[in-house]
Computed example of a mutant assay.
Amino acid sequence: MKGLYCQKGDQGDVKFVIQETNAPNKLGSHQVKVQVKCCALSPVDFKLYEDLKIEIENVPVGREIAGVVLQVGPKVTFFQPDDEVVGILPLDAEQSGLCSVVVTDEYNLVQKPEKVSWFEAAAVIKDGLRAFTALHTLARMAAGQTVLVLDGAAPFGVLAIQLAQYHGVKVLATASSPEDQKLLEELRPSVDVQESFLARVIRVWDSKQDLVDSCLEETGGLGVDIIIDSGVRLSEEDPEAQRYYPHKHDLLTLLSVGGHWVTTEQHLQLDPPDSHILFLKAASLSFLNDEVWTTSRAKQGRYLHILKDVMDKLCTGTFRPQLGDPVPLYEATVSMEMVQRKQARKRIAVKL
């Protein structure tokens, strides 16, 4: 069978190749064999592999899978053959999720609701995990608070908005283009409801609209309780590709007293004056790394509970993702190149 793998050259260039591979013939005590129906594509973080000292010559691509259990190990208790499952393969997995059959531990999977399609399950599982991690685990979201979701039209942003609104949180979001603005303004809690999810869509692409002023105006000058960013400008000399990212000082300014900033910027640097602002506001900062769930087994039960909750909310319509069409396996290489360069605005999933 074939799978998609990634090779990194000496010059830092990345190459994606489809190559032959084999599934293990013998299952471990807690392993299950899954026939993959659909697999979503996410960028490969080579720095994370290096930090964790995971040395793999050909890095498997495609870790969010949905499929049917074919066989279970002797001590498996969660599943039985013919169960429909969805999950995320660990970082040190040897098989690509685009293989027709994969073998993984039962602790990496949860049951897929019957009403949820293979495509939706695979495409939503990782972004749903990120939304739960950011809002529940890190920010301790509560009803009546105000949250600012930066780049709200991204796949992760849409689910974060829907999850926050479900829990009675007032939501502000930024749009980086007129198309993103239209998508956000058309988000509704359900098909028959005309009320928008969002209290305000902030047009960062429009030089006439200021992020800080808009947020302070919407909150009566008090600031927002939770900020979830999608990248931060650390200085004015940052590249043109980051022109719609907010500056870190802007986010510190609009953060409320006791507020919480959840950042995806792993190289964020705070100078002493920045830390002093956080101190004066009794505010806090957390780094969003959703891979921590699979790299540490300390809270395995909570991780599986989150995955189940993501599927439940997808099944009941709380999560209504903005997805493109599934792509065939022969287009996986080209699609993955787009994903790695972060050129895909919608989550891409491969149908097997």
Rank of each mutant, 00 (worst) to 15 (best):
M1I: 08
G9K: 12
V14I: 15
K15T: 14
V17F: 04
Q19M: 14
A23F: 10
G28Y: 03
S29A: 13
H30N: 14
K37G: 15
K37H: 13
C39G: 01
P43Y: 07
F46T: 13
L48Q: 15
Y49Q: 10
E50M: 05
E50I: 07
E55C: 08
G62R: 00
V76Y: 03
D82M: 11
G87C: 02
L89C: 05
L89Y: 04
P90Y: 11
A93L: 01
L98P: 05
V101Y: 09
Y107D: 14
Y107M: 11
N108D: 13
Q111I: 12
K115T: 15
A123D: 06
K126N: 10
F132M: 07
T137N: 13
R140I: 04
T146D: 00
V147A: 13
Q162M: 13
Y166H: 12
H167C: 10
V169R: 00
V171L: 06
T174D: 07
P178G: 00
E179R: 05
L184Q: 04
L184A: 00
R188Q: 13
S190L: 09
D192I: 03
Q194T: 11
Q194A: 14
F197D: 02
F197I: 12
R200N: 09
R200P: 02
S207G: 01
Q209H: 00
E218L: 09
V224L: 11
I228C: 13
R243K: 15
H249C: 06
S256L: 04
D271M: 11
P273G: 09
P273D: 08
A282I: 04
S286M: 09
D290E: 14
T295E: 09
S296G: 07
A298Y: 10
Y303Q: 04
L304A: 09
I306N: 01
L307R: 08
T316S: 13
T318G: 06
F319Q: 00
F319N: 02
F319E: 08
G324S: 11
G324N: 10
Y330P: 10
E337G: 02
M338A: 07
V339Y: 02
Q340G: 00
R341W: 04
R345W: 05
R347M: 08
I348H: 00
I348K: 07
A349W: 02
V350K: 03
K351G: 00
